[in-house]
Amino acid sequence: MATTLSRPAARAASAAPARRPRRQSWLRRHVVQIFAAVALLYMFLPVAYVIAFSFNNPSDRYNSTWNSFTFSNWTDVCGPAGVCDSLKLSLEIGALATLGATVLGTLIAFALARRRFGGRATTNLLIFLPMATPEVVMGSSLLTLFVNLQVPLGFWTIVIAHITFDISFVVVTVKARLQGLDSRLEQAAMDLYANEWQTFRRITFPLVFPGILGAALLAFSLSFDDFIITNFNSGQTVTFPMFVWGASLRSIPPQVNVVGSIMFVASLGLALVGQVFYRRRRA
């Protein structure tokens, strides 16, 4: 069947060059790829800029014009006051928010994906709403809550805010993984003398774990990179995005570009390692 279906398409493709000039047909056939390549270029342009200017020895306060090449920004990342302090704070907040949101979100995902119960629709709505709420609204509404309750703004209010917007993303990611899981695997485990807990530990959890890990990584990157919601709830606490915001008003140390480059390279590396690991496990 497959051959009879693919034949006409193949014939059409091989017939086309005969009728048209070759060059035009190459362009026509690769129009999607060309578009995609241009889009990729557009996506990488600022990254290339960030990496290049991490090696700049700036002559102005904003590190916006090229002066001369130097490694000193990379060897002295913590040099300018605030870069590493804010980075450390962002990592701590990111870790705590990720932990909180992953635990809460994974539990919800398990309830939603595996069980039928009253109040499902309401739950789904409450998961969807934070994702449909613009960050300014979520950030400012939390601010009004904290101000009303006279909670001092700072480290913990940021963590709370981050957990709040991370939960929905964790739920959606883990739920997708759970829905792709064949429930017969769990039944097979029960049939093979595994009780509910053993079934969860030996079968369900290991199979859903990549999804949970992915959700945690997503939560961390959202938290680490968040500016708007943090800006409303940080008080005097300066996370890395807050530091960059402040610096953009005064002077931007080139170390900011170094941190940006490291984040890019690290995430790329992590993704590639993940790919290799995944391939090896499947092979």
Partner: peptide, 13 residues
């Protein structure tokens, strides 16, 4: 009692 499932349900991991 043990079962041979329809699509085997072998544990992929």
């Amino acid at each position: 009692v043990n079962t041979v499932f329809q699509n085997y349900a072998l544990f992929p991991h």
